[in-house]
């Protein structure tokens, strides 16, 4: 039955060109064992009753809290976990919404064998490529989970690593770090979701501190709160509209 529901979701996605799926739910952990990090995460959209496989999110759920799920149904018919696969997908833990933890057995599902994600950063021993002239003002973006300034592991740290490699190698005169937040409410699973107005500044300050730790003098960095910057199209946000609202933009101005 579950496989039928998953198939229905896939068909619906195909018909609708993989529309964005947003919902809030209590996550379920399926205890599949296909080696390290092979457990499955499932979440049911309360509106449709469809159980989705949300495991492909770089940041995984915590079984004690509800999650905000943002994703698209994957084109692949694979069903390793027992749910319609969302990929891309982002999961934000909602620490103010506790859940009853729930773990279910593998029930024949194999889960996924772990592979290093594409956005895995290199060790320090790997020399980064130096940027080549001519240099012009350039911007970089980091994206964040809901109500969070945490630079996500194997996702946003990779973006930061790319940015700092360029900034270190270019004649950068100043950095303007602008934080944005989803302060305009949007409705998800019957909840009007809005981030605090100060979250943009918190994100900007956090990224500025990260840049400082990476060797950029504080005097070169200016931070500002950009408020709600709205939706943008960016592959680094997996082209998920709502997720794209939660970002920091680093503008690196080069010396002439």
């Amino acid at each position: 039955m579950k496989r039928v529901v998953a198939l229905m979701a896939l068909l619906a996605a195909s018909a609708g060109a993989a529309a964005e799926v947003n919902f809030i739910t209590c996550p379920v952990y399926r205890d599949t064992d296909n080696g390290r990090k092979s457990g499955c995460w499932l979440g049911e959209d309360p509106a449709s009753g469809i159980r989705y496989d949300i495991t492909q999110s770089a940041a995984k759920p915590d079984w004690n809290f509800a999650v905000l799920v943002e994703g698209r149904v994957a084109a692949s018919p694979d069903d390793p976990c027992g749910g319609a696969v969302l990929d891309p997908v982002r999961v934000s833990i909602l620490l103010d919404q506790p859940c009853t933890r729930h773990m279910i057995p593998a029930e024949g599902f194999k889960g996924r064998k772990y592979v290093l994600p594409k956005r895995n950063i290199d060790p320090l021993s790997v020399v980064r490529a130096k940027p080549q002239p001519p240099f012009a003002t350039r911007s970089f973006r980091l994206f964040f989970d809901w109500n969070s300034d945490f630079i996500a592991y194997q996702r946003e740290d990779h973006s930061l690593d790319m940015a700092i490699a360029w900034i270190r190698g270019a004649p950068v005169r100043s950095l303007t770090v602008t934080g944005y937040a989803a302060t305009t409410p949007f409705n998800v699973s019957g909840q009007a979701m809005a981030e605090e107005k100060g979250m943009g500044q918190i994100r900007a300050d956090h990224v500025a501190e990260a840049l400082y730790r990476l060797g950029i003098p504080k005097a070169k960095i200016v931070t500002r709160n950009g408020g709600d910057g709205g939706v943008i199209a960016d592959a680094l946000a997996d082209d998920l509209p709502q997720a794209s609202r939660r970002r920091v933009e680093i503008v690196a101005e080069v010396a002439e």
Binding site: D62, N64, M103
Partner: peptide
């Protein structure tokens, strides 16, 4: 492998999930 749960620094806030299967 075993399930690691409710251990700050592993299960939060890194993003590995709570729980996470590892050794």
């Amino acid at each position: 492998m075993f399930l690691i749960s409710d251990s700050a620094g592993i299960n939060s806030p890194v993003g590995f999930g709570n729980p996470v299967r590892n050794s």
